[in-house]
Amino acid sequence: APVSPSSALPSYFMKGSIIQLADGELKRVEDLRTEDFLQSAEVSKELKIDSSTVERIDSSRTPDAVIIQFSVGEHKVQVCVEVLVEYPFFVFGQGWSSCCPDRTTQLLALSCAKLSVGDVCISLTLKSLR
């Protein structure tokens, strides 16, 4: 079963939030780049970056939510998550993207692209998980 969305997005997605990279550097959430995540994961002993490709985006019975099906990692494991339409994912080489960019910008002031089938999102797994 998909994970149920929370009623509000975490405050770190708000434009202007200060994010600390693994090397200690501070950046604003809207300034993060693909390389920041990749380099931070390289430093991490526990976490590694996986590619998660959007396979399907379906409507949900929960108001203002969608169910996104991802194909995760080299083994293409199918994972479904239920998130609010404004929830931002970071797409490789593109940046923040959500199912409803206008709503993300309205609620968080964070500029977003439209998340579409085929987009490859940055996600995390444990390095020890094999």
């Binding site: 997605f13 995540f37 931070s40 494991v77 970071f90 940055i122 996600s123 995390l124």
Partner: peptide, 25 residues
């Protein structure tokens, strides 16, 4: 005197979803 307001700092990994598939081996 005005106390400086502390700004919250979030770790980079909080922004990335944990899509760890369950391995069945």
């Amino acid at each position: 005197n005005v106390e400086p307001r502390s700004v919250p700092v979030f770790p980079w990994h909080s922004l990335v979803p944990f899509l760890a598939p369950t391995q069945s081996d």
